[in-house]
Amino acid sequence: MALSVRDVSKAFDGAQALSHLSLDVEPGRILAIVGGSGCGKSTLLRLIAGLESASAGAIALDGSPVTAPREEIGLVFQEPRLLPWLTVAGNVGFGLEDSSEAERKALVAQALERVGLAAKANAWPRQLSGGQAQRAALARALVVRPKVLLLDEPFSALDAITRADLQDHLLELWAELRPTLVLVTHDVDEAVYLADEVVVMAAHPGRIAERISIDVPRPRERRSETVDRETRRVARALGEAIGRRAA
């Protein structure tokens, strides 16, 4: 689905978190958002997800305005937010209440397998490590197969190997179902490896500083001359966006 953010502003008690931000994502594309801490990345995702309403401007999916959470939109929060009273399997199946028991079981097992948590299906969230909880939260969002998937630093608590695995897993799922992906990350390599386009945000007020297309065909190498060149471009833009604020 096509996502459009039109001239959106968001203020919290007078403090401007986002100012006149516009953004378009074509159906099935992957957009990465990078930017300094507190520049409004999570706020932007929450607005797109319909959890917050914009102070001004509009957000639309295929032309129809988003005013509340929608079935087509999935969100992985910056924190895992697992429900402590459900097992890991219960959490992952939370959005499958309408499916039959058997179908739910199969989908949950498959999703857990994919994020490498099959052995933890019956564990309680309190028994998970930070990275395991993050993967369970990812599985919970993936299992309902949203057409638009918003990911707020979904791999931040993972080691490099697991992170690379899950990035590839995400790309596999994306290739299969072709959702529109918006991914917030602090990791420039991750942004360049995954995204068709990287949006660099600046703070005070939150806005887009630069948009960089990553014209590298998939499957991509993690390290190559072209990838490195794109990475340097993004890193430089990010440095400027953060530095500009400090100046």
Partner: peptide
């Protein structure tokens, strides 16, 4: 509030 938002994302009605 964060837990309630999980419910909102999955579009639970008041009763659910």
């Amino acid at each position: 509030r964060k837990t309630v938002e999980v419910g909102r994302i999955f579009r639970l009605g008041r009763v659910a």
